[in-house]
Amino acid sequence: MPPPDSYRTLAAPSQAEPPKTKGSRFIGDAFRARSADEALAHVEAVRAREHAARHHGWAYRLGPDAPAPRSSDDGEPSGSTGPPILREIEARELYRVVVVVTRYYGGTKLGVGGLARAVGEAAGAALDAARKQVVTVRVPVRLAFAFEDTSPAMRLLDVFDAEVADQSHSAEGTELALRVRRSEAEPLRAAFVEATAGRGRVIG
């Protein structure tokens, strides 16, 4: 199954802190992250900001066709922190997102189940507080055509969801650099060859 043409992510960072659970504070921070390095940089920034806390569980999920998501319990009981955070991200069908949940221990043990519920609540609250946006996945397509084929070539831009990134002109004609919705790239290339009766060139 091909990856989707668009995905939901965060438009801006957000933070939420639900009421204490048996004296323990749980602070959820959610960020947009375009790569694993960027996600881990957000984790370290929260760790530095909340340096008095001992545990900063986290999870991230990148693009729809990116490597598998990752999570960490950061010293909490296995499966009590990272996986619950990841479940909250996945439940909202979000991508390119990292969530960090900081815990300040309140003196009463919660057990694995209680800890997982509290962590999930903080992660979910942070994600729900964030503004969302839909990002369209586009790929580059380059076309070249003679001046007499300008009209049929340019009409394709109205048919397909294509953005002109750059264009140049020479004695031979025009070269267009487009950004096209991923699922439409191959159909556009085929339609271009047909519209120009094979005279146009698909460069990329």
Rank of each mutant, 00 (worst) to 15 (best):
S72L: 04
E76K: 04
P77T: 03
G79M: 01
G79R: 00
S80V: 09
T81L: 05
P84F: 03
P84G: 05
R87L: 05
R87K: 13
I89S: 02
I89D: 00
I89A: 00
L94E: 03
L94Y: 06
Y95N: 10
R96W: 08
V101Y: 00
Y105I: 01
G106W: 04
G107L: 01
T108C: 04
K109Y: 03
G114W: 04
L115P: 04
A116M: 00
A118C: 03
A118N: 05
V119W: 01
V119Y: 05
A122F: 01
A122R: 06
K132M: 10
Q133G: 08
V135D: 01
V137T: 13
V139A: 15
V139M: 14
V139C: 09
L143V: 06
F145Q: 03
F145L: 01
A146L: 08
D149I: 13
S151E: 15
A153V: 09
L156T: 10
L156Y: 09
L157M: 10
D158W: 12
D158I: 09
D158V: 10
F160S: 06
D161G: 09
E163V: 14
V164L: 10
D166V: 10
D166R: 15
D166W: 11
D166M: 13
Q167M: 12
S168T: 15
H169N: 09
H169A: 13
S170E: 04
E172S: 13
G173T: 14
T174D: 06
E175L: 12
E175K: 11
R179P: 12
V180T: 12
V180C: 11
R182W: 04
E186L: 07
P187Q: 09
L188R: 11
R189K: 15
A191R: 07
